[in-house]
Design a protein around this nucleic acid. Structure first.
Lengths: 210, 210
DNA sequence: ATAATAAGTGAATCATTATTCATTTCTTGT
DNA sequence: ACAAGAAATGAATAATGATTCACTTATTAT
């Protein structure tokens, strides 16, 4: 006998896989899933198209993984903000700001994650992650209710509304039809946008004017 | 000379166009845009595929028209509710209920209009209509502010949040992954869903607990 | 060096559908 | 009935892009 899988080869495979993922990621970051055709990704990663299929079941699977990675990153940031200092309201507010700010900083990827039309496989992932966001918010809302920082409410439902309100508010500004045109939103406009979102959402949660 | 376009023919053309539109509409209603291939639509309408192209520039154009028709219907209903009796808050609440109730009554079409992945041409239409909803809400909010039924706020932004909150709250329940499975949401669940949405939204607008 | 095995290649293939267009059928006015 | 035009037809084509697979190259152990 002769060839036996070795550490070196295992590493190399992992590296290649990672490189493909990174290049595809980059492509999505700059032009959305739509612009990440296998041929292009392969070229960018310096491998043959066939090689992609040695590392991923299908394009949808590759995309799903990109989606997961990118969204998990955002979910983590939100979770982080929710775990920060202050009472429930302050933490929820911080999380909303975090979410919006990051989306505006990386508009193309944000749009891809929030609103770009994608294959069913990836859409399923999106649905899952929207729930992940909602769950984090829900937890904080429940804490708020317990500590009397928030009035009694359907925490799950409120959290879904939060996700929806913020996503919708960003879809317009993020959508390629808008952000594709030269000038991005001015700093001022962005700030106002975030302020109004936060204002509405916190009111929706607390039922009190600030 | 001989053939000259006549009233009869003009009528027939209009009829055919309408029939194509209706059949495509029906198809979308029962299975989303995805399931409305030209071949199927043609068969359903009892015409050849080529005939579709005598009446519509392209599939996307046909879809865009279906989208417009269907959404305009919903926008009108919302506008109607907003023009009803009561103060601004009551009317906004009625509009939200109307929107949610209709979506839950026709879940597949609602999902197609709100969240189904569609071609860019149709996506553009969707963006436009989301703004149409927002504009109607915005108007009512401004009236509410003037009559002191609502506190001062960024009406445009609040209206966008309304649209987002309600859409997001419905996407989960409407999505084929959910509603595709046999049993639709129970009456009770639906009512609770609508109540919580309305509650959050009205609080977001008024800043007061009810 | 060689055999055994795996990884990599990329042109060719496949799959899916929208769209076209040469041909046929239908309408109309004389 | 006939000719001029318009509308309808649907099989063939086009376009897009994912996926395959026969073949080449690389790695390992003896």
């Amino acid at each position: 006998m002769a060839y036996r899988e070795t550490e070196k080869m295992r590493n190399r495979k992992v590296q290649t896989r990672k490189r493909i993922l990174e290049c595809a990621f980059e492509r999505v970051t700059s032009g959305g899933f739509r612009s990440a055709q296998i041929t292009h990704v392969a070229k960018a990663a310096g491998v043959a198209t066939g090689t992609i299929y040695r590392h991923f079941e299908s394009k949808e699977e590759l995309f799903a993984e990109i989606f997961r990675t990118a969204t998990q990153r955002e979910v983590d940031k939100v979770a982080e903000a929710l775990a920060g200092p202050g009472d429930a309201v302050a933490r929820l507010e911080a999380a909303l700001r975090q979410f919006a700010a990051r989306a505006l900083r990386g508009p193309t990827m944000a749009w891809s994650l929030i609103a770009e039309p994608v294959d069913p496989r990836v859409e399923a992932e999106r649905l899952l992650y929207r729930q992940a966001y909602a769950e984090h918010f829900e937890k904080a809302i429940n804490e708020g209710i317990e500590s009397d920082a928030l009035p009694t409410q359907n925490a799950r439902q409120s959290s879904t509304c939060l996700v929806g309100a913020i996503a919708e508010s960003l879809v317009g500004p993020l959508s390629p039809a808008q952000s594709g045109n030269s000038q991005a939103l001015s700093q001022t406009t962005q700030t106002q946008l975030v302020e109004s979102i936060v204002c509405f959402c916190i009111q929706g949660l607390t039922g009190t004017r600030r």
